[in-house]
Design a protein around this nucleic acid. Structure first.
Lengths: 112, 112
DNA sequence: CAACATACGTAGCTGAGCTACATGTAGGCA
DNA sequence: TGCCTACATGTAGCTCAGCTACGTATGTTG
C-alpha cells in the first residue's frame, strides 16, 4: 500500500505509539500494525534504524532489559520527544489540509 | 514548511492541477502555489523533472508552443493520468486516515 | 531436529525531491 | 546603455529516509 508515501511521517507515527507507554522495538512494530488497522506493516530494516535515529536526535531514550532470555531495548519518549510529537502533529495537519485542498474533491468544478 | 513530507504525494498534486485544464510548467508551479494557499513553493528543480517523469510514465503528454517570444511546454492529462489521479486520491485518503488514526488526537488517554 | 515467533541489528541500494547552476526572452527603470 | 526582475525551461549532483536482504540469537512447538 505505502512505500515512499511514508517519507517524513514515520517519525511522528513512532513517537505517537510511544506517547502512552514505553515499548521495545518489536512491540512498537506490533503497536503500529494494530493502530493502523493492519495497514502499516513496517519492515524491521525501517523500524530499528528509525528508532536509533530518533534516539540519536534526543527524542527517545532506551534501556536494555532481558525478558524470557531475550534481550529487549525499551524506548521511551524524552521531553524533547514529546515536544517534537506535538510539532509533528501540527505539521501533519497543515500538510494534510494542504494536500486535501490541492487534490480537491474530484472532477467537480469548483463553485465559481 | 515541507520537505521530505511531500515524498510520494507530489505526483498527485501535479495531476490534480492539470485535471481541469492543460498548463505549462511555470503555470503549474503558480497554480500549486495558489491552490495550496501559498504553502507550497515548489522549486523548479523539483517540478520540471517531475513533469518529465510523469510524461515518461504516460500520465501526461506535452506540446511546445511560443507565446510572447517565450517557449512553453504545455502538459495535459492523458486518460491514464486521469485514472492514476483517481487512484492517487483514494490512496491519499486511506494514507491520511491511517496517519490520523495512529497519531490520534493528542495526549488525551483513549476511553478505556 | 526443523520451523517459527520473538528480538535485535547492519550493509547496501533506490529514488524522489532539493540545491545550485545554466540558458534565453521580455519589460521596467535609472 | 546596463541592470534587475519576471517569465520559462532545463540538468548535474547530492541527500538521506525507507526498503531489501542479510546475519545473529533465544524460546517454543511439532
Amino acid at each position: 500500500m505505502l512505500s515512499e508515501a511514508l517519507r517524513g511521517h514515520l517519525d511522528a507515527l513512532i513517537l505517537a505509539v510511544l506517547e502512552g507507554e514505553p515499548l521495545h522495538g518489536y512491540a512498537v512494530m506490533e503497536a503500529l500494525q494494530v493502530r493502523s488497522g493492519g495497514t502499516l506493516d513496517l519492515p524491521t530494516g525501517s523500524l530499528y534504524p528509525a528508532l536509533r535515529r530518533l534516539e540519536r536526535s534526543g527524542l527517545l531514550e532506551s534501556e536494555w532489559s532481558t525478558v524470557g532470555g531475550r534481550r529487549r531495548r525499551t524506548y521511551r519518549l524524552t521531553s524533547a520527544g514529546g515536544r517534537a510529537l506535538a510539532a509533528e502533529r501540527t505539521e501533519w495537519r497543515s500538510f494534510a489540509a494542504m494536500v486535501d485542498g490541492v487534490l480537491g474533491a474530484g472532477p467537480e468544478p469548483a463553485a465559481d
